[in-house]
């Protein structure tokens, strides 16, 4: 019995000492030296040139910042006076000098601010190269092909037209017929609701974002409630139509003028990969059980994205 007690005491002391050791942080944690300061600052570009249809003009966003080591506690800085140019082959199509920007700044002659309202001249199927040079940075570039525009031939709004296979309430559905819906093409769809209201004697309107519900497993939802998908992901590909379910139940139509507007973007494969990776990055947080996400970039020697795309707005009366 004595032997048993002694053995028990020894055993418990041993386990207790292990537990106590495990409670000492320093016993199990090693701070490692990682050369974050060694990260050489590079240009981070977000350049999105959108061509609206049918005007063939649209906004041009460029945003230039410099990357920094994570132990550099200063704010991320923009890169003023960078030289920005767009070329088709050897021929310069557009150029400007970048100025500090916030989204409300507008284009001025020979200056590329963060947001230029209208541009034109780029053609589907043509290859364009963005080049950015700034003092103290390695020049960066990206080359992409302007995608084709979707040729829309019909739009239908079907009340409670979509039944979720996993159950739940029926959802309204938007069906857009297209002539050139194909595999290997990339799309972004967003939905707004334009609501009218009486402001005294005046009729005012307000726009709010609506959520689109994926109808197929390969659609990806963006943080803005939009959907990102490829031609091959479309369930109705053989019918040359995209079917998008509206995330909420039917809205009470208060004013007869109210309508939805569907934004359909024809985007590049690069832009698709970029948006997807940013969404995934945003979703996972610090979850160690999830595959880490590296945000996609098509900028050579830098980070970010250069995107050319077509944008069509389709008005839909519910």
């Amino acid at each position: 019995m004595k032997k048993y007690s002694l053995l028990n005491t020894l055993l418990y002391s041993f386990i207790l000492s292990l537990i106590m050791m495990s409670c000492t942080e320093n016993a199990f944690i090693t701070v490692v030296d990682v050369d974050t300061a060694g990260h050489r600052s590079k240009l981070a570009v977000t350049a999105r040139f959108i061509k609206d249809s049918p005007s063939d003009k649209g906004p041009q966003y460029i945003y230039l910042t410099a990357s920094k080591g994570i132990n550099d506690l200063a704010d991320i800085k923009q890169v003023p006076n960078a030289e920005v140019s767009i070329r088709e082959g050897e021929q310069k199509v557009d150029e400007g000098i970048y100025v500090d920007s916030i989204p409300s700044l507008y284009f001025t002659e020979k200056k590329v601010s963060g947001y230029r309202m209208e541009w034109e001249g780029y053609q589907p199927g043509h290859t364009y190269t963005l080049k950015v040079k700034a003092e103290g940075f390695e020049p960066v570039s990206a080359t992409i092909v302007m995608p084709d525009k979707s040729v829309i031939n019909s739009v239908q709004y079907i009340s409670q037209g979509f039944t979720d296979p996993d159950g739940g309430e029926k959802l309204d559905e938007i069906v857009v017929g297209m002539d050139n819906l194909e595999k290997g093409k990339y799309y972004l769809a967003e939905l707004d609701y334009v609501q009218f209201y009486q402001n005294g004697t005046k009729l005012d309107s307000a726009v709010s974002s609506e959520y689109l519900q994926p109808e197929g497993p390969l659609y990806h939802r963006t943080t803005n409630g939009g959907l990102l998908f490829r031609g091959e992901d479309i369930l109705g590909l053989s019918n040359k139509e995209i079917r998008l379910a509206k995330g909420q139940g039917p809205i009470d139509v208060v004013h007869p003028n109210n309508y939805y507007q569907l934004h359909l973007y024809n985007i590049t494969k690069d832009q698709y990969a970029f948006i997807l990776s940013v969404e995934q990055y945003d979703n996972i947080g610090e979850n160690p059980f999830v595959e880490p996400v590296v945000v996609y970039s098509n900028i050579e020697n830098g980070f970010g994205i250069f995107s050319l795309e077509y944008h069509q707005t389709i008005k839909i009366k519910p």
Partner: peptide, 27 residues
Amino acid sequence: PIFEYAIHNRAINGPSNFQPFFNVRAA
């Protein structure tokens, strides 16, 4: 992640997005 950079949210979403910047920590 050893560095950080910013992208503009308009590169991700359409015109009705209101958060202008998005910081990415990356390897």
